Computed example of a mutant assay.
Amino acid sequence: MKTLKEDVRSRIVMAARSEFVKCGYRKTSMRTISAKSGVVLGNIYNYFKTKDDIFCAVLRPLLSVIGECMAEHSKGEHEEKRLDFSRQRQKEFLSSMLRIIFLYKEELRLLLFESQGTSLENFRENFIDEQVAISRTYMEQVETSVSPLFFRISASTWLTIIGEIVSRPDLQQEEVRQALTEYIRYNTAGWQELIKK
């Protein structure tokens, strides 16, 4: 059972999410969040110091899932010092991607396209930097040399693909599944080729 404090925070976050999705971060005012949540404006500041804090609270579940997926994705491969190119691993990765995209489609759109002026505005660059670091460490372990720029391009491509999907409301889940399946196969073949050289 939620405490009163948790209930009020939840109402603020839900109202803010709705407004951020509809109007974007910059065009959503604290007054609107107050009106939509039914929480007096002055009282909102007892729960969140700034609109940015509310934006981060809206995106926290997504960011948590992304962090967990990144940790899980890199953990096993680094421990075993080999990439798993099996169809089963590809299916698991696809399933994970689809789950994130369809559970957090609006949050992803906010994060990728509406976070300017927030503490999350550098998410894209930070994500790419983290992926480059993970990839470099792995390639050093298997004694394969790949250009750091290639790692950046690879990580950036994934963000572009996700951005393309979440910015198009007309896409059906099956169409997304097919496109991601094809890209994962295409990408896997490329990594296999790089590891062999």
Rank of each mutant, 00 (worst) to 15 (best):
L4S: 13
K5L: 05
E6D: 14
S10C: 05
R11W: 02
I12N: 01
A15N: 04
R17C: 02
R17S: 07
R17K: 12
E19T: 03
F20Q: 02
K22H: 07
C23G: 06
G24C: 09
R26M: 05
K27W: 07
T28E: 10
T28R: 14
T28F: 11
S29T: 15
M30L: 14
M30V: 12
T32C: 06
I33N: 00
S34K: 06
A35T: 04
K36D: 07
V39D: 02
V40R: 04
I44K: 08
F48T: 07
K49C: 01
K51W: 00
D52Q: 00
D52W: 01
D53Y: 02
F55C: 07
C56M: 00
V58E: 09
L59V: 01
R60F: 13
P61V: 14
P61Y: 12
V65A: 04
I66D: 13
I66Q: 12
G67K: 06
C69W: 01
E72Y: 12
H73C: 08
K75Q: 05
K75D: 04
E77A: 08
E77Y: 08
E79G: 06
F85S: 11
E92F: 00
S96N: 14
R99A: 11
R99W: 03
I101F: 13
L103A: 10
L103P: 00
Y104R: 08
Y104Q: 11
K105G: 13
E106N: 15
E106F: 09
E106L: 05
L108A: 05
L112I: 15
L112Y: 13
L112V: 10
T118C: 05
L120D: 06
L120H: 10
E121H: 07
N122P: 00
R124G: 05
I128Y: 12
I128F: 07
D129G: 08
E130I: 01
Q131K: 03
Q131W: 00
V132M: 09
A133L: 07
S135Y: 06
E140T: 06
T144K: 14
V146K: 09
S147P: 14
R152W: 07
S154K: 01
A155R: 04
G163T: 03
E164F: 15
S167Q: 15
L171P: 01
Q173V: 14
R177P: 01
A179C: 10
E182Q: 11
R185H: 13
R185D: 15
Y186G: 03
N187R: 12
W191Q: 07
Q192K: 13
L194Q: 08
K196Q: 11
